[in-house]
């Protein structure tokens, strides 16, 4: 049943306008990061590491969450139009399956986005910045940690888009959440804020690994937030009734 729901959500994504968002935003971020790296080569001496921070700083700080917000809001859009929510509640499917299926679809697009960011990073590093060899394995680990940090953001944005009928408001909340996350990370309190977890995981703002010695806590917090938000979504969907 869940697989059918996932297939239905994936079908919604075909030919959707969000692919432009997916393709364009990481390109802007990569262009900015590469330009900044080239302009400050005398300070940025850590090669692939330095280029990574330049490529991902603003992406992880401000734009990752709104991008996920657009994906999530798009998938809930149809249910919020023309009685779609009533149709969803009367289908012979356990309501949480819809939430999980949307989560899987958003996560798939997020995974592709991370892959696209990494591909652009490699391409810019080798062709434009003249970096030799391959990026250190640790960078791939940072990307994976970023994906782990994306789990609570995906769950939170899906929950917000489920509750708030407007398309735009959850996206705006994600941006403001990212801004607040920046302030909290500066005070070393970012781990308790879902929107700051991607930044911490990707280690986008510092040369030293921010999570060294604290990876276990990070994993627990990411999974804990995700589980909590999924439980909340389940509770809301279970109690929700058809509105005639």
């Amino acid at each position: 049943m869940l697989m059918r729901c996932i297939r239905a959500e994936m079908r919604k994504l075909r030919g959707a306008g969000i692919w432009w968002v997916f393709a364009l935003l990481p390109v802007i971020s990569a262009a900015y990061g590469t330009f900044n790296f080239m302009q400050n080569r005398e300070i940025l001496t850590n090669g692939w590491y330095s280029l990574f921070t330049q490529h991902t700083l603003f992406y992880a700080l401000f734009f990752f969450s709104p991008m996920v917000g657009v994906y999530a809001a798009y998938l809930w859009r149809m249910e919020h139009m023309g009685g779609g929510m009533n149709m969803l509640m009367t289908m012979p499917v356990y309501p949480f399956c819809f939430f999980a299926a949307k989560g899987a679809a958003v996560l798939a697009v997020t995974l592709l986005t991370q892959g696209w960011v990494f591909a652009l990073y490699m391409l810019c590093g080798r062709t434009l910045c003249g970096l030799t060899g391959w990026p250190p394995l640790q960078i791939a680990l940072y990307m994976l940690r970023g994906l782990l940090g994306a789990l609570p953001v995906v769950a939170l944005q899906l929950l917000l888009s489920m509750v708030i009928r407007s398309f735009a408001v959850p996206v705006l909340i994600a941006l403001v959440g990212g801004v607040v996350g920046m302030a909290l990370v500066a005070q070393d309190a970012g781990i308790w804020w879902p929107y700051a977890l991607v930044l911490l995981g990707m280690n986008a703002n510092r040369a030293q690994d921010q999570l060294s010695g604290g990876l276990g806590v990070y994993v627990l917090v990411c999974l804990g937030f995700t589980a909590l938000l999924c439980l909340l979504a389940q509770a809301l969907l279970t109690r929700r009734d058809v509105r005639a």
């Binding site: 306008g17 935003l25 971020s29 900015y32 401000f62 734009f63």
Partner: peptide
């Protein structure tokens, strides 16, 4: 006639503003 496009453009403009 869709909300995706203005939001995507707004997001791109935000990113370009940093640039």
């Amino acid at each position: 006639g869709t909300q995706v496009l203005p939001l995507a453009v707004g997001l791109a403009c935000s990113l370009l503003s940093v640039f």
